[in-house]
């Protein structure tokens, strides 16, 4: 009963504060849109210059996915030097020699592949390729999208939840509420319920926007995605409220972002960490976002069900339970009942 009273108040307060509502819904949408603009490009075409090549080679290259120009050696070298072109193909003792511009490592593979493809050196003809998961059209945005959805929900719930609990403390309302017959767990429960309902709405909007407007790759069930984002949001809320006990003001709450939030982004699968040494991977295993991101990827890219993801779901529940218990404990500082 008291849980409902607290939850009702939180929702009321929330919808009074239009800006925070906008922050939690519009901001993730905006950032995802910007990322979509940046990442959702079809692979760009390489600009290649050919020097003293046989006509046949030129035509072959031009038929591939690149822009080809014929230049004399001097101009070509100057352009390569100024990074106007991506690569230079020339003949060195009757063998083709490819000189890459080389300052952007992400381009290397792309240029090599397009040149090899164009010259018929790839194995595409010999081996036909099919996709078990995903598709040929999938790009970096589709791969990172599920992680980012999880991240933004985690981030904004952490911040807004932490700050509003902090305010309860600095305004004195926390102490005032604890001078009523409420139990500590009811207060924490009310917070989880109020925020839980709100973040459910937030998650629905973010996921729908990503999938239907930004056309993010999604083969799984919507309710599973929402289940995971819900778990992530509750974990974020319990971490945020717990840490807010160690902050004296809003500014100190912001200081937790580089310590608690940003590292999670690095280790949660946005960058591949399989190849890293095992102790680095252990770091990722200690972070809730890792499990949320793995689960979201599993659902959205591979249509996994919750049975396939039981380990991730279990770990999220563990984080949630532990931090919630710590919250109830931390309130002892205010009332030993």
């Amino acid at each position: 009963m008291n849980i409902l009273i607290v939850a009702k108040r939180i929702l009321r307060q929330f919808f009074r504060d239009k800006r925070s509502v906008a922050l939690m819904v519009v901001a993730p949408g905006l950032i995802l849109s910007l990322l979509w603009l940046v990442l959702d490009n079809d692979s760009r075409t390489a600009e290649v210059a050919v020097v003293e090549a046989p006509e046949q080679i030129y035509e072959q290259l031009a038929s591939g996915k690149m822009e080809v120009s014929i230049l004399d050696e001097k101009t070509a070298q100057k352009q390569l030097n100024d990074a106007d072109i991506d690569a230079l193909l020339k003949w060195d003792e009757n063998r083709p020699l490819l000189i890459l511009e080389g300052s952007d490592p992400t381009d290397h593979q792309m240029i090599r592949t397009s040149i090899q493809e164009a010259m018929g050196l790839d194995r595409k003809e010999a081996v036909s390729i099919q996709y078990w998961h995903g598709s040929e059209d999938m790009n970096f945005f589709d791969y990172t999208g599920p992680v980012l959805i999880g991240f933004f929900i985690f981030f904004f719930v952490f911040l807004v939840g932490g700050v509003s609990f902090l305010r309860e403390r600095t305004q004195g309302t926390l102490e005032r509420v604890l001078a009523t017959p409420i139990q500590r767990y009811e207060l924490v429960g009310g917070y989880l319920l109020g925020f839980g309902l709100f973040t459910l709405l937030q998650s629905v909007l973010i996921v729908l926007y990503s999938v239907y407007v930004l056309d993010m790759y999604m083969v799984g069930e919507m309710w599973r995605v929402l289940f995971i984002t819900m778990l992530l949001a509750l974990t974020a809320l319990s971490v945020g409220t717990l840490l807010s006990t160690y902050a004296k003001n809003e500014f100190q709450m912001i200081q937790f972002i580089p310590l608690v939030i940003v590292p999670q982004l690095f280790f949660s699968g946005l960058f591949p960490i399989e190849g890293l040494s095992s102790w680095v991977q252990v770091l990722g295993k200690l972070m809730p976002l890792t499990y949320g991101a793995e689960a979201l990827r599993g659902i959205m890219l591979r249509n996994e069900n919750l049975g396939d993801l039981q380990w991730q779901v279990f770990m999220l529940l563990m984080f949630f339970a532990i931090f919630t218990l710590l919250n109830v404990k931390a309130l002892r500082r205010h009332r030993n009942l």
Binding site: R9, R12, Q13, R16, D17, Q171, G172, T173, E175, R176, V177, A179
Partner: peptide, 13 residues
């Protein structure tokens, strides 16, 4: 019933 020295109120409400 308790009244604290600082006004413990929710200003948005």
């Amino acid at each position: 019933g308790y009244m604290a020295q600082e006004n413990a109120l929710y200003y948005e409400l």
